[in-house]
Amino acid sequence: MAPDDREPSVLLVFAHPALERSRTNAVLAEAGRAAAGVRFHDLYELYPDFVVDVEAEQDRLLTHQVIALQFPLYWYSTPALMKEWLDLVWLHGFAYGKGGDRLKGKQLFVACTTGGPAQAYHKRGYNRFTMEEFLRPLEQTAHLCGMVWENPFIVHAARLKDDAHIRGEADRYRQRLEGLAAAARETV
């Protein structure tokens, strides 16, 4: 199935329950929305009542080569709706298990912001574990589904950074997404 060149190859699934209060995530989201080859998909805007349309979401996953998840880290995990979305859409028999090979060969890319500074995510920091460790559940999700785990994009201490820094991160983020999109177009 050769994808149309004009169709975005990256599905950027975005979850933020209070975007109006966000600084960094809002800027990153804008960068993601503007990135070439990326389809921006705002979960809290589409499903404010948590009623996820499973079939539509599965179709969406199937038509993109790269699945990108962008969210602020809440209690070392995704916001509730993104977890709900994973629970309801990444089903047994679809994403994993018997007959569940529909996501196989796709890439999973995580972009996440944290409240704490980089040094907190360290064996001797107050969070005691590295980001790599905190993201293991998602990494394993990719593995179980036969997906390629992309190196995550992380912005630490998102609340404390100044505007110029955030703009720099946003540029970097956009380049990363566009790079993934371009590569995905070539591989397929």
């Binding site: 499973v54 629970d87 309801l88 859409v89 089903l91 047994h92 028999g93 298990g97 018997k98």
Partner: peptide, 13 residues
């Protein structure tokens, strides 16, 4: 039924 909170399919497997 096959939905996200239903584990019967996986249990069976």
């Amino acid at each position: 039924a096959a939905d996200g909170w239903d584990t019967s399919g996986r249990d069976e497997e």
